[in-house]
Amino acid sequence: MAKKISKKDIAQLLKAWSQQFAVLAPSRKRGVAEMAEWDGKDVSFLDWYRNTVVPPKASFLPPMEEMFRFQKDKDNYKIEPPSKNGQKQLIFGIRPCDARAMAILDMTFEDAYQDPYYLSKRKNTLLVGLSCANPCESCFCTSLGISPSESADVDLMLTNIGDHFFIEEITAKGKELTAKTSGLKDANKDDEAEARKAKETAYNKVTRKLDTEGIKDKLLASFDDEGFWEKAAAKCVSCGICTLLCPTCYCFDINDELVKDEGARFRSWDSCGFSLYTRMPMENPRKEKWRRVRQKVCHKFEFYPMTFDIIACTGCGRCIRLCPVNWDITKVLESVPAKAKAGK
């Protein structure tokens, strides 16, 4: 049975949840929109929030994260494992595209060896989704099988129906949460109809389309088409922003720091857009920019589908909105030759 909550009670709701969880909600305090610890009162994001600039992956794979510390005692070293952080989190307002991105990231971090840093945070976090009412011009989620207003990848899903939010319980964890939350009312048939209408309207507002049919095979066939990739990469400035702020990009670097006798190992976001990313002392397989752009596009639309049977793109549009030179992945994908030119 779906629930609803009056809009003016949202602050109350988040306050109640703050008792059990570290609640994260959209915030612009640091200049760009991101999911940040809720300050206990401000719900003005309900008016300005379309999507965060920093994707929610940052709450699971932080831009920089300490992996462990070590101590140096003369010539001996002692490793201090990371402390077990059992803090329960709740992310309020995640968009369906970004929730799907988390499901896509799970595949990598659960694959073969478990990644303890990512997975422990993921296990301790509830996702409360918020339907998109105003998708951006750059959004193309519907082309990737995602609706801006529905999600199976969250625990609860909220949809704006005028003076209320309509609440769907998606997972058992979500159901458990609503059962323990006071101030929710049962939704009726009219609310349901309102929600359906709102979702349909939002869906139709996503006007940008990308034809993903057969894209994997087209990319495979065009892998050696150097001319095509050179053209596709021509205006790229290798700034890396389309990967760093992509909700499904997960590449990271690992580095050490040692000050006197106290040290730590960190991991930090990295990007296949940077030429140092693959550089080895003797050579670099992706020295040329076009090879790096090819890697980025093919990883999402060819290699990830080959390994996990899903395209590693959710159509969130960040790489289009945030690119300083208006590079547009949908345009690149549309121009992949239907048949590869004769190989070199």
């Binding site: 990598t108 694959d111 073969a112 990271f252 690992i254 693959t278 550089r279 397989p285 990883h299 290699f303």
Partner: peptide
Amino acid sequence: LEKRMKCGIGKCGRCNIGNIYVCR
């Protein structure tokens, strides 16, 4: 094969050749 590697377990991304990770 040898590639630049960081994690060694198929997570950090950089050692791929196509859909294959050299480490994994």
